[in-house]
Amino acid sequence: MPQRREPTLADVAELAGVSLTTVSRVINNRGYLSEAAKERVSAAIAELNYRPNQAARVLHGMATRSIGVIVPTVALPFFGELAAQLEIALAEHGYRILVCNSQGRAEREREYLDLLVSHRVDGIISSAHNEDLADYGTVRMPLVMIDRDLFPAIPNIRCDNVRGGALATEHLLQRGARHPLLLTSRTGRRNGREAGYRSTLALADIEAQIVAVDFNTPEPERTQRINDELTSRLGGFDAVFATDDLTAAGVVEWARSAGLGVPEDLRVIGFDGTRAIRQAMPGLTTIRQPIAELSRRAVAELLAQIAAIHDGVELRALEIAPIELPVELVIGRTT
């Protein structure tokens, strides 16, 4: 039995009884066509289950109607929900997404970036966490970052991390904490949540305590390192502000294993407010990010760049201030 092949443009034209040019015009919605011709071509496409060759479309300079999305991993609640919301927002405008999981590795992120550029997606949205990846500076297609400040000419959509860090710390102090500890993935000037934590404690004349365990540390090593750090400091802190909800949930489990009551002995607050964590641990106090709105704003910025290219406007010509969206304190039973 001969091997079945994918149907071609010529197959569609033959079945519909029209020219190749007519089929191409129907697919790309270009030029005048009679309704009868459109219906014949559409029926032939459906009968053959024909799919346009994206590589050929790229060679002819056509839009692929696809957007690349780079995240560390959709296995983490925030990035899984972010990818889902980006897909919803882009689908409303007729775009599909190609999700690339970098696994937190700079080399893999670089490979995915090269792959997306070579396949000429119409644009890229990146929320991966490798810092100082210079490769993005060479990308000349529509590009938007989510919570990642790489280059001043690339739009960066994020929540108000500094205010979120301050809200979390203020809440712990209001609940009676006097020695709150910050548990984060990376410490430094780019950590807005840390900045909010530090400034709030400085106003209260309280010394900051920070434990940083790298975001990209594989499990179960990351959890074990966090548990070891907390155990070694036992008695020196009475609250934990974890800069993501999954880590905060792990702190609650550690507290129970250490014989500490939450919130009686230890107050715990997280950050993100994803649907998955709210369902798994509805009592967790957290700072909620507006993930759906972050996604819509990122898509709006990307579509504006796509339109600008069509109008002949040069991208990256001006510096763009980060777009910050407000956060919300969600009080649960852990504080």
Rank of each mutant, 00 (worst) to 15 (best):
241 F>T: 08
22 T>N: 02
73 T>L: 00
18 V>W: 04
35 E>V: 12
92 E>Y: 08
39 E>P: 08
39 E>F: 06
54 Q>W: 00
327 V>A: 06
108 R>I: 13
107 E>S: 00
73 T>Y: 00
280 A>R: 13
272 D>F: 01
104 G>E: 05
144 V>R: 04
107 E>N: 00
270 G>H: 03
65 R>V: 03
65 R>Y: 12
333 R>M: 14
26 V>Y: 07
129 H>Y: 15
285 T>K: 08
61 G>A: 07
25 R>G: 00
322 P>V: 07
79 F>Q: 00
207 E>Q: 11
65 R>W: 12
26 V>H: 03
229 E>S: 14
241 F>G: 06
71 V>P: 02
230 L>W: 03
289 Q>D: 02
12 V>F: 10
126 S>F: 08
302 L>V: 11
48 L>E: 01
192 G>C: 09
211 V>G: 02
159 C>M: 11
335 T>N: 11
118 S>Y: 03
126 S>P: 10
281 M>F: 14
38 K>R: 15
156 N>G: 13
50 Y>L: 02
307 A>C: 01
215 F>A: 03
152 P>H: 10
320 I>M: 11
118 S>W: 01
157 I>Q: 10
90 L>R: 09
56 A>S: 10
76 L>G: 01
83 A>Y: 09
137 G>F: 09
95 Y>P: 02
146 I>P: 06
187 T>M: 15
44 A>W: 05
148 R>P: 12
153 A>I: 03
23 V>M: 11
52 P>I: 01
135 D>Y: 12
274 T>Q: 02
231 T>V: 04
99 V>K: 07
11 D>R: 04
